[in-house]
Each structure stands twice: as C-alpha cells, then as structure tokens.
Amino acid sequence: MSYRWDWSVLVSEPYLGWLLAGLGWTLLVAGAAWVLALAVGVTVGVLRTLPNRAARTLGTAYVETFRNIPLLLQLFVWYFVLPELLPAPIGNWIKRELPLPEYWTAVIGLGLFTAARVAEQTRAGIQAIGRGQTLAAAASGLTLAQSYRYILLPIAARNVLPPLTSEFLNVVKNSSLALTIGLLELTGQSRQIESATFHGIEAFTAATLTYVVLTTAVILVLRAVERLVAIPGLMARA
C-alpha cells in the first residue's frame, strides 16, 4: 500500500475551512429537517391512531408513500421534478429566485422522508399505552382532544424518546445525501478535499470522526433528557 500521508492537510487553509463549512451545513440541514419531521411525523402518527377511518387511511397513505421510495430519488423528485410540475410562475420562482435551493430541497426532502418514520414511532408509542388509559380518560369526561393533549401524548412522548433518538441520528447521517444535489455538507466537503489534494484517507478520517463525535454527543444529551423526564416509580427501560 503506497500512500503519502499528510495529516497537516486537515489544518491547512482552505481545507480546514471547507470541513468546518461542511459541518455547519450538516447541522443546518439536519436541524431544520428534524423540526419539519417532528411536526409532520407526530401529526401523521396521531392521525393513524384516531377513531376516524378516513384520518387513519390518510396517515397510512403518507407513511407508505414516503417509506417505499429511496430517499435519494425523493430528493431528485423535489429538486428536478416538482418545479416542472407546478404552475409555471411558482416553478420558475423556485428555479430562479428561491435562495439556497439545494438547502431547502434537502430540508424538505429529508424532513418529509423522516416524518414517515417518526409517524410510525409515534403511532407505536401511543398504541403501546393500552386502551385502558383511553377509556379512563373518556370515562372522566375528557374530550378526545383533551385525552390526547393531557394523557396519551405526554406518556407517548416518553415511550418514543429512545427510538426518536435513533431517528434523529438518522437525520444527521442522511443529511449526507444532500451532496447529490450539490450541497457540500460534511461528507461532500471531505470528498472535495480528496479530489483537490488526493489525501482522501485524512479527509475521510476527519469527517468520520466528526460524525462519531456528533453521534455520541447526541446520544449522551438525549439519555440525560430521558432520565430527566422519567416517570418516578417506573424503571427506565434498558
């Protein structure tokens, strides 16, 4: 294996700047996509547990659609196809005037894709509570909306915290797909450094370690949150 090592590439300009910019975009894409995924995902997940059949069907259709198409293809559809299908003025606005089109496409594509997974976790979290709680809430005269607001969602939120942690990590990792539509996030920048310097191993090592640190930090923070909101008397699940 003949390879000329040079770790100093990582701290020399402009490459250090590239890596930091990449990290910045990774955080910005993942953060915004996560907010979107939570908002849409919890709504869709609740829809799937409602007594109303039409609401459940709508929720199921959303989940099946976004779960059964590769994320990469979804990004391409948002980026290349949607502007062509929209009415001309809107499509042209997206193509010509929308600032940061790669960024917003990545956020929406990744957010709506992840929402389907969040929805499934939310549904499972609510259904795990058991029918007795719903009956008890109804028996005391709470409306359906009140029983979701005060009983089901607060309990479900604690149930889904561990699976949602791993979904959040998926968002961070999946944000790397944004490079396919030209957004140079962390992975994209390390690839960029590789082609500019032929020091791929060093660049990939830096990016990989950054992901590991990011992931570990997220896990530690969310474990602390889990302990904070744990219900007294109930053992935290291993």
């Binding site: 007795g132 008890a136 005391s140 309990i155």
Partner: peptide, 29 residues
C-alpha cells in the same frame, strides 16, 4: 362527554395516569 363527567368509573387495572402525580390524577378532569 358531559354525561361521562357525571358518572364515576373504576377500572380493573386502575388506569391511573402514570406520568401524573396522585394529586394531579385527581385534579386533571
């Protein structure tokens, strides 16, 4: 909903709300 608020019910498995304190269980409704 209104009628149920006037009829008390006690369940086999208690169905207390696990995330609320004992007093909050009683005050919620």
């Amino acid at each position: 909903t209104r009628l149920r608020s006037r009829i008390g019910m006690v369940f086999q498995h208690f169905e207390l709300y696990p995330h609320l304190s004992v007093l909050e269980n009683i005050t919620l409704a």
